[in-house]
Simulated scan of single mutants.
Amino acid sequence: MTITEVSQKFDISQDTLRYYERVGLIPRVNRNKSGIRDYTEEDCNWVEFIKCMRGAGLPIEVLIEYVKLFLEGDVETLEARKELLIEQRKQLLARMEDMKKTLERIDYKIAIFDERIVEAEKTLRRTENPICG
């Protein structure tokens, strides 16, 4: 697949894909005879993984470390990659709890606005002139 196709498939800009490759988030993408990036299914799997992890808020530095460990070899780095993901899971759960509290606060504020709107509408109806209005 070309970079344009991958960009469209994953809704990621071409600049972002180039950046991901440059910093090591995606292992080096092969190029065709014309020098155009030629993404394989495995490359696309990396893009999908990185997009998912970034969407969950994992820092780029952590993901670079994960990819680096992966490329060093499976057996030697299994435990390190597992620990890295466990730590990120803990941090994600904490962020989710913070987001839950924020959502509850927003819901509370919306409810207050709803009450104020109802009261304002009642006041408006009471002050309207029944003959003119």
Rank of each mutant, 00 (worst) to 15 (best):
T2H: 06
I3A: 01
V6I: 12
V6Y: 08
S7Y: 06
K9D: 04
F10V: 04
D11S: 10
S13M: 04
D15A: 15
D15Y: 13
Y20L: 05
E21R: 05
E21K: 06
E21M: 05
V23L: 04
V23K: 09
L25N: 04
L25I: 05
I26C: 06
P27V: 07
N30S: 13
R31V: 07
N32L: 12
G35C: 09
I36W: 10
R37Q: 11
D38H: 07
Y39N: 01
T40K: 06
E41F: 01
E41M: 02
E41L: 07
E42A: 15
E42I: 15
E42T: 15
D43W: 01
D43F: 00
C44I: 03
C44T: 05
N45Y: 02
V47M: 04
F49A: 09
C52T: 14
C52K: 15
M53A: 13
M53V: 07
R54P: 00
A56P: 00
A56C: 11
G57P: 01
L58N: 01
I60M: 07
I60S: 03
V62N: 07
V62G: 02
I64W: 03
I64T: 08
E72F: 00
E72A: 05
G73C: 10
R81W: 02
R81E: 02
K82I: 13
E83A: 10
L84K: 12
L84Q: 09
L84F: 09
L85N: 05
I86C: 12
I86Q: 13
I86T: 11
I86M: 13
Q88H: 09
Q88Y: 04
K90C: 11
Q91W: 06
L93Q: 14
L93R: 14
A94C: 13
R95A: 11
R95P: 05
M99A: 11
M99K: 09
K100G: 00
K101I: 08
T102P: 00
E104D: 14
E104R: 15
E104Y: 11
R105M: 13
R105K: 15
D107C: 08
D107G: 06
K109F: 10
K109R: 14
I110E: 12
A111W: 05
A111K: 14
D114V: 09
E115R: 15
E115T: 12
E115H: 12
E119S: 12
E119N: 11
A120V: 01
E121F: 02
T123A: 11
L124R: 07
L124Y: 08
L124V: 00
R126S: 06
R126P: 03
R126G: 01
T127N: 09
I131H: 07
I131T: 10
C132Y: 06
G133K: 05
G133Y: 00
